[in-house]
C-alpha cells in the first residue's frame, strides 16, 4: 500500500500550531495595544476655528487658567470663555488679525450675538459619566494631572487617555496626584520626588478627607 500522506505532512501539525500560536498572540497584542483610549484618544489634536495658542497666552503672557476658564472652581463644566473674554484684550491687541476673524464675527461689533466660535471639543468623557471639575480642583487635583502641560501646547491635544481605568487609578490612590492648594493652577509645579509626592499626598488626603468614590454611583448616575 502506497503512502497515503506524503512525508512532509509529518511536520504539518506542529507547524500549524506554531502559525496559529503566533497569529493568536499577535492579534491579542494588537488589540491590547490599539483597542484602548491610550491609542484611540491620546494625541487627538483637531484644527480649531481660531489658532489659539495656550503656550503664548500662559507661558509668555503669564495668564492664569481661570482668566478664561472662569468657572472651573465653582461648576462641574470648565467653561470655554465667552467672546467678551477674548475681546477684553483683542479689541486692541491684534485687533485686525485675520486669525481672529471668527472671534470678531461672534463679537459682532460689541453686540456679542454673532455666530459662536465652534471650538472642537477634545476631552470628552462619555455622556453617562458626570465629571465635576470643581470637585477636583478644589480638592488638590491640578489641571495638569488630567490635561498635561497645556501651557506648553501651541495646539492643544489630548494628553491622557481619560478612560475608566485611568480614572480609577487615581481614585484608588489619589495621593499620587494631590497638590498643595496654591499650586493647582501652577502648570510648572513638580513634586521633589515620587516619595515626597506620596508622603505629601497622604497628608492632604488625611487632612482634607479625600475619599474618591470607586463605586459606580460616584461617576455614573
Amino acid at each position: 500500500m502506497a503512502n497515503f500522506f506524503p512525508k512532509w505532512t509529518n511536520q504539518l501539525p506542529w507547524k500549524l500550531v506554531v502559525c496559529l500560536g503566533v497569529l493568536g498572540a499577535s492579534v491579542t497584542a494588537g488589540i491590547t495595544y490599539y483597542f484602548t483610549p491610550k491609542y484611540t484618544r491620546v494625541g487627538y489634536q483637531p484644527t480649531q476655528p481660531v489658532p489659539f495658542s495656550h503656550a503664548l497666552h500662559v507661558q509668555q503672557l503669564g495668564m492664569d487658567c481661570r482668566y478664561c476658564h472662569s468657572f472651573v472652581e465653582v461648576a462641574s463644566h470648565s467653561n470655554v470663555p465667552s467672546v467678551q473674554t477674548c475681546m477684553s484684550c483683542h479689541t486692541q491687541v491684534k485687533a485686525d488679525s485675520p486669525r481672529l476673524t471668527a472671534v470678531r464675527a461672534a463679537w459682532n461689533g460689541g453686540k456679542a450675538d454673532g455666530p459662536p466660535v465652534n471650538w472642537v471639543r477634545i476631552h470628552q468623557v462619555p455622556d453617562y459619566v458626570y465629571f465635576n471639575h470643581a470637585a477636583h480642583v478644589n480638592r488638590g487635583v491640578s489641571c495638569y494631572s488630567c490635561h498635561g502641560a497645556v501651557n506648553e501646547m501651541a495646539v492643544v491635544y489630548q494628553h491622557q487617555p481619560q478612560s475608566m481605568s485611568w480614572c480609577l487609578d487615581c481614585h484608588r490612590a489619589p495621593e499620587n496626584n494631590l497638590r498643595p492648594p496654591g499650586e493647582i493652577y501652577n502648570m510648572n509645579w513638580k513634586a521633589e520626588s515620587p516619595e515626597q509626592q506620596r508622603e505629601m499626598g497622604l497628608k492632604f488626603k488625611e487632612e482634607w478627607d479625600v475619599n474618591p468614590p470607586v463605586s459606580c454611583g460616584g461617576c455614573h448616575r
Binding site: P37, R41, G43, T47, P126
Partner: peptide
Amino acid sequence: RGAKSTRPPIEIFPDMDR
C-alpha cells in the same frame, strides 16, 4: 500610541457614549 492626529477619536464600542 500617542501620535498626534487631527482625526476624531475612534469609539470602538460607542454604546451610549453620545
